Amino acid sequence: MEKIIAPKVLFGKRVKEFRLQAGLSQEAFALKCGLDRTYVSGIERGLRNPTLEVIVILAKGLEMELKNLIEF
């Protein structure tokens, strides 16, 4: 039986992947987005369930279209 991975976990991994590709530390990325580093950490670890507003902020911080960030 295939284990289903929660969307917030998949989303968090995607944010982390793109952040690392952009060469940004969590601290630098959080600062760029106007968010707390611990909040970004929680998102990346799949512990936080960000609102649509925060997802848009993250996409802008990664300088990418929203659809590319949420496609997994």
Rank of each mutant, 00 (worst) to 15 (best):
K8G: 03
L24V: 02
G23N: 06
I43Q: 04
V15H: 00
R48C: 08
N49D: 15
P50D: 02
K3W: 09
E27A: 12
L35Q: 12
K32T: 10
K60I: 01
K60W: 00
A30C: 10
K13A: 07
G46E: 13
G23F: 01
F11L: 15
N68I: 01
K8V: 12
R37A: 13
K16P: 00
F18K: 13
E71S: 11
A59S: 15
E27T: 12
V54R: 02
E17Q: 09
K60C: 00
I57K: 13
L35P: 08
E27Y: 09
I43N: 04
R14V: 04
A22H: 07
K3L: 13
V9N: 07
I5Q: 14
E71G: 03
F72G: 10
L58G: 02
S25D: 05
L66M: 08
K32P: 08
L20G: 00
L69A: 10
C33D: 08
E53M: 04
M64P: 04
F18T: 00
Y39R: 02
K13S: 03
K16C: 08
I43M: 10
V54P: 00
R14D: 07
V9A: 13
E65G: 01
Q21M: 03
V40S: 07
V40Y: 06
D36S: 04
E63V: 03
N49T: 15
S25C: 07
F11H: 08
K8C: 12
K8E: 15
E71I: 04
Q21L: 09
M64F: 08
I4H: 12
L66P: 01
L69T: 11
A6D: 15
E53H: 07
I55P: 03
G34C: 02
A30R: 06
P7A: 11
T38V: 12
R14W: 03
V15D: 01
V56Y: 10
T51E: 14
K13Q: 12
Q21N: 04
S41V: 08
I4N: 09
G34L: 03
I4Q: 11
R45S: 15
R48S: 14
F72N: 11
L20Q: 14
L20K: 14
N49E: 15
K16L: 10
K32D: 10
I55H: 05
K13G: 08
G61I: 11
V9K: 15
S25T: 15
F18D: 01
S25L: 05
E27C: 03
M64D: 05
R45T: 15
I55A: 14
L10R: 13
D36L: 04
R14Q: 15
L69S: 09
R37P: 04
I5E: 15
K32Y: 09
F72E: 12
E53F: 06
L66R: 00
